[in-house]
Simulated assay, not measured.
Amino acid sequence: MAANYSSSSNRREHVKTTTEPQPGFLERLSETSGGMFVGLMTFLLSFYLIFTNEGRALKTATSLAEGLSLVVSPDSIHSVAPENEGRLVHIIGALRTSKLLSDPNYGVHLPAVKLRRHVEMYQWVETEESREYTEDGQVKTERRYSYNTEWRSEIVNSRNFDREIGHKNPSAMAVESFTATAPFVQIGRFFLSAGLIDKIDNFKPLSLSKLEDPHVDIIRRGDYFYHSENPKYPEVGDLRVSFSYAGLSGDDPDLGPAHVVTVIARQRGDQLVPYSTRSGDTLLLLHHGDFSAEPLAGGGPGLRAAHREERRGSWLAQLPGGKALTDRQEQRGVSAKRGEKTWSRGGSAWP
C-alpha cells in the first residue's frame, strides 16, 4: 500500500507500508539471545583492545621522553649545522615553496603548500523515515521517502532510490575535486619530507572576490564558480566550485603573512626526516604556530603538546577511558626519564 504526496517542485515524498505476521515466542527469544551475544562480544573486544594497547602507549610515552632529552635547536635555520647531522632538531620558521600552485581553468594562482579544488553537484537526495506498529495482530512498517535537491560533493546514485523516476541524478561530474601539493617545501635551508608536508592540513577558504569569470559558461557568485545558467535557481546536474589553501608561502598582500610552523624531526643533510627512537617508535612532528625552545626545554607545550595532540586523535583516544589511558601512560614515560633531560642549542648543553 502506498500513498503519494507532493509539496513543491524540489521536495517530493511518498509512503510505503509493508505487513508481516507477528513473530512467535521462539523467534523473539532467538533475536534477544543473538543481541545479547553480540553485545557481550563487543564489550569483551573493547577491553582487549584497551589492554593490548597498554604496551604501545608506554612505548609512545618513552619515545616522547627520549625526544625531550635529546632535541636540539640550531642557531639558524638559514644554514645547515654539520654537528646536528642525525640528531633530533627543533625548527621554527615560515614555509616557502619554489613555484605557484594554480588551476588555470579558473584563473586561480597562489603561493601555498596545498591548493584544493572542491566541486559540488546539485542532486536529488533521498531520505527514509520508518515507524513500526502492530495492527490486527500484524506488524506493519511504514516507510516515508522524501526527495530534496542539495549540493553534494559526492555522486548520489539515484539507482538506489526507492523511486528513481523523476529523481534521476547524473552518473558523473564534468569537473572533479583535486588537491595540488607543492613538490618542494622549505623552512629556511631545510626541506620538509613528504610525511611533514602531509601534516600541513590547516585549509582556509580562498576568496574569489578579485577574480573574473574564467569562461562564458562559468559564473562567479561570492566564493563559488557556478557551471549553471542561473546560480540563484540551480538545476539538477549544475556544478559549483570553491577553493581552499594550506600553508601560505611568503607574505601576500591579500592573504596575509607566510604560515609559520614548528617542526621536530631528524636532520639528514638539509632534509627533515623521521627520527627513530631507541624504543622503536618514530618522531616526526609538525605544529602550526611558533613554539619556542624555552617552554620545550622545560617540558612545556612544544613537543609534548604536539605529540599529545596526535595521539589523542588516534582510535585509542576515542574509546571509553582511552583519553585517560594515554595521559597516564604519557606521565609514566616522562617520569621514567625525569632527571635525564638536558637541553642543548647548537650542540652545547644548557644548564
Rank of each mutant, 00 (worst) to 15 (best):
Y147T: 02
V156Q: 00
G166S: 06
A297G: 09
Y233H: 15
N4M: 11
L45W: 08
P320Q: 07
S7D: 12
Y106A: 07
P104D: 11
L211H: 06
E132W: 07
L110R: 06
N169C: 02
K204D: 09
L29G: 12
R338F: 09
N10K: 12
E150A: 09
P253L: 13
K323S: 09
Q138F: 09
D327V: 11
D223C: 02
F161M: 07
A246K: 02
Y233D: 15
F161V: 06
R308C: 10
G166A: 06
M41H: 07
H90R: 04
G237D: 01
D201Q: 11
I165V: 15
F178P: 08
G313Q: 13
S244P: 04
T97D: 00
L272Y: 00
A194C: 10
P351G: 13
L100K: 15
V241E: 00
N105P: 07
N148C: 09
G347S: 00
S8A: 13
G107D: 03
K341N: 13
R159S: 15
S207V: 07
S33H: 10
G300Y: 06
F43D: 08
D198K: 12
S249D: 03
V108Q: 04
G34L: 05
D238W: 01
P205G: 09
M36Q: 14
I264Y: 00
A349P: 04
G313F: 08
N53M: 10
Y245N: 01
P295I: 01
G321D: 05
S244M: 06
D251W: 14
V71T: 04
H288G: 07
G195F: 02
S73T: 15
L44Q: 14
P231W: 01
V156W: 02
E142Q: 12
F225D: 03
E212R: 10
L44S: 12
R304I: 11
E235F: 12
Q271D: 14
K210E: 11
R220E: 01
G256A: 11
P234K: 01
H167N: 04
Q331P: 03
G35C: 06
V108P: 03
N148K: 09
A258I: 09
R328C: 08
A297Y: 02
A317W: 05
E309D: 13
